[in-house]
């Protein structure tokens, strides 16, 4: 437990005064994923830790950004609650701030949302070394712009996240994983049909020739649905393997692409892939030069490959201009994580 917000603010002030770039580092678990390489000297947030407030009855938890995800999970466990967005813990190194900055969430995303959906408020230090609070600890708050959610996926380029307030959820009473052997095409079809039924689904993936469906909720509902849907009850570790990218599909050095796409979209042909989020997230391996995602879908180079390339893809000119102006509104000198999101962003 250490409050380092003053030191962090001072460090940003010094960097701003000297026009020095900073690379914001929490547990250092995601340096090589999500974003582009950033060579700036590190600003350490990993020591700024501690749970500040946890009210199980309010379903709200507040913690400093350097707090490890695993520590939050332990605290929640005691009250039989969970982080609904199932973030990767990356061998215990993942921090709360880094998880928000990368907007990483696990298999339940289509049903229970991501950290972007769970965040209620943040404290940040912007590029001008101002310590600012947005949102709060209540479930609904529409005063001012939603700066808290804006941090999700911004990769730290809009501010050093120092505190996060989150909505947490009760642990479901029962959870069951069902597996079915089948090819991807048929699996995608079943995922879509079943996600359209009012059943307690919280996971749907296809990997290595098997479709996995996860049911969680009231015991009675889980049991009843399982009887209707058949399949083989299997261990739940597939979800952890997906979340942590530890399944054999993810091993090796081949570039790992992440495609965010409508579940209704057709399957890419001739690519090694794994389907998650009921078909809304598709992982692909290898050199995908020949593949163009359908309009509206979004593809990024999640890990491996050339980390100096535009790993987040291209933006339309109007969008690019808005994003650049927004960056300037928070960090006019461009000292926070320069180049981490896009090469052109200054």
């Amino acid at each position: 437990m250490a409050d380092q917000s003053e030191q962090l603010r001072d460090a940003v002030a010094v960097a701003a005064a000297g026009n020095q770039a900073l690379y914001i580092r929490g547990g250092d678990s995601k340096r090589d994923v999500c974003g582009r390489a950033c060579a700036a000297p590190a600003l350490e947030v990993g020591g700024h830790t501690g749970i500040l407030d946890y009210e199980p009855d309010e379903l709200v938890l507040s913690a400093r950004a350097g707090t490890r995800i695993s520590e939050l999970q332990q605290a929640l466990d005691e009250y039989n609650q969970v982080l609904p967005f199932e973030p990767p813990v990356y061998a215990g190194r993942a921090t709360l701030g880094g998880t928000l900055a990368c907007n990483l969430s696990g298999p339940a995303r289509p049903w229970l949302g991501s950290i972007r959906d769970a965040v209620l408020g943040v404290q940040i230090i912007n590029g001008q070394a101002q310590l600012l609070n947005f949102g709060g600890k209540v479930m609904k708050n529409v005063a001012g712009y939603d700066v808290s959610r804006l941090q999700a996926g911004a990769l730290g380029t809009l501010g050093v996240i120092t505190q996060v307030h989150l909505k947490v959820m009760p642990r479901p009473e029962a959870t069951l994983t069902l597996a079915y052997e089948m090819p991807a095409l048929r699996a995608l079809d079943i995922m879509r049909t079943r996600a359209g039924q009012p059943k307690p689904v919280t996971g749907a993936c296809w990997v290595g020739g098997r479709l996995y469906l996860r049911l969680s909720g009231a015991q009675s509902a889980v049991q009843h649905t399982a009887r209707q849907w058949g399949g083989d009850p299997v261990a739940a570790d597939i979800w952890e393997q997906l979340r942590e990218q530890q399944h054999p599909f993810f091993t090796g050095d081949a570039p790992l692409w992440r495609l965010s796409i409508a579940p209704g979209a057709a399957l890419a042909k001739g690519v090694s892939q794994c389907l998650d989020w009921g078909g809304a997230q598709r992982w692909m391996r290898g050199d995908l030069q020949g593949y163009t995602p359908p309009p509206g879908a979004h593809m990024s180079l999640f890990a491996g490959g050339d980390r100096n390339s535009e790993v987040r893809g291209e933006l339309e000119p109007v969008q690019q201009q808005l994003q650049q102006r927004l960056k300037n509104a928070f960090d006019p000198q461009g000292i926070l994580n320069p180049g981490r999101l896009y090469s052109w962003m200054t």
């Binding site: 972007r116 712009y145 959610r149 979004h298 109007v318 969008q319 808005l322």
Partner: peptide
């Protein structure tokens, strides 16, 4: 935009490219 330029926010999947302008515009 105020200049009358069209811009698409969000995506057909669950994640936005770059900043989540859709979340910012909401509310």
């Amino acid at each position: 935009t105020v200049e009358g330029e069209r811009v698409a926010l969000g995506s057909s999947g669950l994640d936005s490219p770059g900043y989540d302008l859709m979340a910012l515009v909401t509310g």
